[in-house]
Amino acid sequence: MSERQPSPDLGSAPELISRRAPLLVFSGQSNKPLAEAICQNLGIPLGLSRTEKFTNDNLIVRYEESLREGDVFIVQTFSTPVSDSIMELLMMIDAAKSASAGRVTAVIPYYSYARSDKKDSPRISIAGRLVADLLQEAGADRVLTMTLHAPQVHGFFKVPVDHLSADSVLSQHFRSCVDDPHEAVVLAPDAGSIKRAAGIAHRLDAGLAMVDKQRISDTEVSPRALIGDVKDRTVFIVDDEVSTAGSLIETVGIARSMGAKDVYVGVTHGVYTGPAIERIAQLDVTQVASTNTVLVSDEKIKAAGGKLAVLDVAPHFANAIRNIHSGESVSTLFS
């Protein structure tokens, strides 16, 4: 249960009361610290809600304040346990609509099922689309997310989707890691990441390189060559997420074999499942940075031997929520 904070000084945030509908932000259980940080940036308290689990493993969600005609934003990232996180969000959306909320926006910092974006083998579900259908059926009027693994997932929704980017945060972090970013190289771990890596390289005025991979089987991909020059240069590896860190090991290995001096890693989503933390602790990198779209526990940070860094994207989500609420453009936040 979240605690109601003191009422904000409305004079310090006049844009938040410019609309007749009150702005209300609530959080599921998956990443409450991010929701609290978003509210702190907005200058409003986190809404009061409660989620409980019965002995039969069923969930119940309950709002403990009025939502009538409110502009409701529900923050819930799809992290472990993912199925519980999705079900809780569906129930919170449904309960908000039943409580006469004026509009409900699902704020999903990490949409994990974006990886399931196509039918690449027989008799499987395109779960990214299925989850999108469930969110809309529950009553979501809008979705706000960050760095989808596959951009086409955006098209799975029939409601408006605002797709934020963490590239400015990662670029700023990389710039602080070296004296002269111009001497560094941004490395894309595969062809699918080259566009994003090129954008960050442009922000930093740095070089660009890419790992060329070949598919060995339906489930296995192996690096074949590195396109670009990384010898005696600081390398910034960028990707959308780190899960088990298996691909990261391969990318770091080929960069080191080609003479990279220092290696930094920057990703939007630090999922860190299975052996990831142990692998990162032993990995020949200076640092692995992720944003706080996924909650990274103090235990994981400690176990990684000081190699993990967490970057704050709460201001990005707060600005997007503010613009959505006031009817302003979200795309202006990317300029």
Rank of each mutant, 00 (worst) to 15 (best):
E3Q: 06
Q5A: 15
D9T: 09
G11A: 14
A13T: 15
A13D: 08
P14D: 02
E15R: 04
A21P: 00
L24R: 14
S27Y: 10
G28W: 00
S30A: 13
N31T: 09
N31C: 08
K32V: 15
P33F: 13
L34D: 01
A35N: 03
A35E: 01
I38G: 01
I38K: 00
P45D: 13
L46M: 06
G47A: 05
L48G: 04
R50Y: 07
F54W: 05
N56P: 00
D57R: 14
N58Q: 11
I60W: 06
V61H: 08
E65P: 00
E65I: 04
S66Y: 09
R68H: 13
D71S: 14
F78S: 04
P81H: 10
S83D: 05
M87H: 09
E88M: 05
D94R: 11
A95Q: 09
K97L: 07
S98Q: 11
G102T: 05
R103L: 04
S112D: 03
S116Y: 06
D117W: 07
D120K: 10
R123D: 10
S125I: 15
G128M: 06
V131G: 03
V131M: 07
A132Y: 05
Q136D: 09
A138P: 02
G139T: 12
R142V: 03
V143Y: 02
T147A: 15
H149P: 04
P151A: 10
Q152H: 11
V153E: 01
F157G: 12
K158G: 14
D162T: 11
L164I: 10
A166N: 07
Q172P: 00
H173T: 08
C177S: 07
C177P: 01
D179E: 14
V185L: 12
V185E: 08
L187A: 08
A188Y: 11
A191L: 12
S193Q: 13
K195W: 03
R196T: 02
I200M: 08
A201I: 00
G207K: 01
K213F: 12
I216S: 03
T219E: 06
T219L: 07
S222M: 14
S222T: 15
A225V: 11
L226K: 11
I227F: 02
G228W: 00
D232F: 10
T234S: 13
F236L: 03
D239E: 04
D240T: 15
E241R: 02
V242T: 10
V242I: 14
V242S: 00
A245K: 01
A245N: 02
S247D: 11
E250C: 10
G259V: 12
D262A: 15
D262S: 15
Y264K: 09
Y264M: 10
V267M: 01
V267W: 00
Y272H: 05
Y272D: 00
G274D: 13
L283D: 05
D284Y: 02
Q287T: 12
Q287A: 10
Q287D: 04
T291M: 09
V294L: 07
D298I: 07
D298F: 07
L308H: 02
L308Q: 03
A309Y: 03
I321V: 13
I321K: 08
E328T: 09
S331L: 14
F334G: 05
